[in-house]
């Protein structure tokens, strides 16, 4: 398990691994919004929680198709499926590696971008907390989508169509928690729902993703 995690992290940071791509996309998206909406602070700070969460969602989506597609192309996936490691475990580890290389950097840099979007001061801790609680679900659901579309040519687009609807609950509760933080309301209820969604996803989706992989490997 550890070997797979280390390999995936190593592959992500070496040349062509795509590490930082999601982060750069997030940065550009959050830079573009003030240009499009206008620099007027009141308007920006009202939409900032939503923009930050949608940005995180889309940035996460960018690198999803790499989770299994590359391993499928070079034959490693066949070999992993015949290895002693259970496929469910491999899915969970690969989703974890995706989160560490995509979700975690987003969590760390989101406050900086919140500043650019005039996010009200009290909302910052809740932005970080909601992203920490929500982004693992994005990676795990993404791994499921990637398992469903592995082996398809141009599967990336189909992957987005499959996965984005599954992201809606996380988006709703994540953005709501930040919005409540911004108006000094109690952010706990949406955070609880967010955490519950993430936990349910982490517990159940590896099995679904492994089943999808088994079908696609036939």
């Amino acid at each position: 398990m550890k070997a797979l995690l280390i390999r995936d992290l190593r592959l992500a940071v070496r040349a062509g691994g795509g590490f930082g791509l999601a982060l750069a996309f997030f940065l550009i998206l959050c830079t573009l919004v003030p240009f499009g909406v206008g620099p007027e602070g009141g308007q920006l700070s009202r939409i900032a929680p939503g923009i930050l969460w949608v940005g995180a969602l889309l940035a996460c989506l960018l690198s999803l198709d790499r989770i299994f597609a590359l391993d499928h192309e070079d034959g490693s996936l066949d070999l992993l499926a015949t290895a002693p490691l259970p496929l469910e475990g491999a899915v969970a580890i690969k989703a974890l590696a995706h989160w560490l290389t995509t979700g975690l950097p987003l969590v760390i840099f989101a406050p900086v971008l919140g500043l650019m979007l005039h996010l009200p001061g009290p909302a910052f801790p809740w932005l970080v907390v909601s992203l920490i609680l929500g982004t693992p679900a994005l990676s795990m659901l993404g791994a499921f989508g990637a398992a469903m579309t592995v082996g398809l040519r141009r599967g990336g687009l189909l992957l987005s169509l499959l996965v984005l609807p599954l992201y809606i609950p996380t988006l709703i509760f994540g953005a709501e928690a930040v919005r409540r933080g911004a108006i000094a309301a109690d952010p706990a209820p949406p955070l609880v729902f967010l955490a519950a969604i993430t936990l349910a996803v982490l517990a159940l989706v590896p099995f679904a993703a492994a089943a999808a992989l088994r079908v696609n490997l036939r």
């Binding site: 390999r7 190593r10 592959l11 070496r14 040349a15 691994g17 192309e73 034959g75 490693s76 066949d78």
Partner: peptide, 10 residues
Amino acid sequence: GHADGLKPAL
């Protein structure tokens, strides 16, 4: 199988 399962970056 036909594919060697190698990672080019490693």
